[in-house]
Amino acid sequence: MTRRPATPIHNRIAVLRAERGLSRQELADAVGINYQTVGYVERGEYNPSLDLAFSIAAFFGLPIDAVFSPDPFEPMSVKLYGRPAEDVEEAATSA
Protein backbone atom coordinates (compact mmCIF):
# COMPACT_ATOMS: atom_id res chain seq x y z
CA MET A 1 0.00 0.00 0.00
CA THR A 2 3.07 2.23 0.16
CA ARG A 3 2.82 4.59 -2.76
CA ARG A 4 6.11 5.69 -4.15
CA PRO A 5 5.74 8.72 -6.39
CA ALA A 6 5.42 7.71 -10.05
CA THR A 7 8.27 10.08 -10.96
CA PRO A 8 10.53 10.37 -7.93
CA ILE A 9 12.42 13.60 -7.40
CA HIS A 10 16.04 12.87 -6.52
CA ASN A 11 17.68 14.96 -3.85
CA ARG A 12 20.90 15.56 -1.97
CA ILE A 13 19.33 16.29 1.39
CA ALA A 14 21.04 13.40 3.22
CA VAL A 15 24.49 14.48 1.92
CA LEU A 16 23.86 18.13 2.75
CA ARG A 17 22.66 17.22 6.24
CA ALA A 18 25.72 15.03 6.81
CA GLU A 19 28.04 17.83 5.64
CA ARG A 20 26.48 20.23 8.11
CA GLY A 21 26.06 17.68 10.90
CA LEU A 22 22.30 18.18 11.05
CA SER A 23 19.74 15.68 12.23
CA ARG A 24 16.42 15.27 10.45
CA GLN A 25 14.74 16.87 13.42
CA GLU A 26 16.88 20.01 13.11
CA LEU A 27 16.18 20.35 9.39
CA ALA A 28 12.49 19.65 9.98
CA ASP A 29 12.28 22.33 12.68
CA ALA A 30 14.01 24.83 10.39
CA VAL A 31 11.58 24.35 7.49
CA GLY A 32 8.46 23.70 9.60
CA ILE A 33 7.69 20.06 8.86
CA ASN A 34 7.69 16.78 10.77
CA TYR A 35 11.06 14.99 10.98
CA GLN A 36 9.49 11.87 9.48
CA THR A 37 8.63 13.85 6.36
CA VAL A 38 12.32 14.70 5.92
CA GLY A 39 13.05 10.96 5.94
CA TYR A 40 10.34 10.19 3.37
CA VAL A 41 11.64 12.99 1.08
CA GLU A 42 15.24 11.72 1.43
CA ARG A 43 14.19 8.19 0.53
CA GLY A 44 12.21 9.42 -2.49
CA GLU A 45 8.95 8.19 -0.99
CA TYR A 46 7.41 11.63 -1.00
CA ASN A 47 7.82 14.41 -3.54
CA PRO A 48 7.82 17.76 -1.72
CA SER A 49 5.70 20.67 -2.91
CA LEU A 50 7.49 23.50 -4.71
CA ASP A 51 7.06 25.61 -1.60
CA LEU A 52 8.78 23.01 0.61
CA ALA A 53 11.50 22.30 -1.96
CA PHE A 54 12.35 26.02 -2.13
CA SER A 55 12.35 26.25 1.68
CA ILE A 56 14.80 23.34 1.97
CA ALA A 57 17.07 24.75 -0.76
CA ALA A 58 16.98 28.19 0.89
CA PHE A 59 17.83 26.64 4.25
CA PHE A 60 20.98 25.11 2.75
CA GLY A 61 21.70 28.37 0.88
CA LEU A 62 21.75 26.60 -2.48
CA PRO A 63 19.80 26.93 -5.73
CA ILE A 64 16.93 24.49 -5.92
CA ASP A 65 18.53 22.45 -8.73
CA ALA A 66 21.53 21.78 -6.50
CA VAL A 67 19.25 20.02 -4.00
CA PHE A 68 16.50 18.50 -6.16
CA SER A 69 16.60 16.98 -9.62
CA PRO A 70 14.34 14.80 -11.78
CA ASP A 71 17.48 12.79 -12.74
CA PRO A 72 19.76 10.93 -10.32
CA PHE A 73 22.66 13.03 -9.03
CA GLU A 74 26.19 12.05 -9.87
CA PRO A 75 28.06 11.02 -6.70
CA MET A 76 30.15 13.85 -5.25
CA SER A 77 33.34 11.71 -5.45
CA VAL A 78 32.82 11.22 -9.20
CA LYS A 79 32.29 14.95 -9.66
CA LEU A 80 35.48 15.75 -7.77
CA TYR A 81 37.80 12.96 -8.90
CA GLY A 82 36.18 11.56 -12.03
CA ARG A 83 35.08 7.99 -12.63
CA PRO A 84 37.24 5.05 -11.42
CA ALA A 85 39.62 3.68 -14.09
CA GLU A 86 37.66 0.40 -14.59
CA ASP A 87 34.44 2.31 -15.31
CA VAL A 88 36.20 4.46 -17.90
CA GLU A 89 37.68 1.33 -19.56
CA GLU A 90 34.29 -0.39 -19.51
CA ALA A 91 32.64 2.64 -21.07
CA ALA A 92 35.34 2.75 -23.78
CA THR A 93 34.95 -1.00 -24.50
CA SER A 94 31.18 -0.82 -24.76
CA ALA A 95 31.44 2.20 -27.06
Binding site: T2, L22, S23, Q25, E26, Y35, Q36, G39, Y40
Partner: peptide, 11 residues
Protein backbone atom coordinates in the same frame (compact mmCIF):
# COMPACT_ATOMS: atom_id res chain seq x y z
CA UNK B 1 -1.25 2.79 4.95
CA UNK B 2 1.40 4.86 6.70
CA UNK B 3 4.85 3.49 5.73
CA UNK B 4 7.44 2.69 8.37
CA UNK B 5 9.22 5.68 9.81
CA UNK B 6 12.65 6.15 8.20
CA UNK B 7 15.36 5.68 10.82
CA UNK B 8 18.19 8.11 11.25
CA UNK B 9 21.01 8.21 13.75
CA UNK B 10 19.72 11.60 14.93
CA UNK B 11 16.26 10.29 15.68
Amino acid sequence: IEPDVPTDEGE
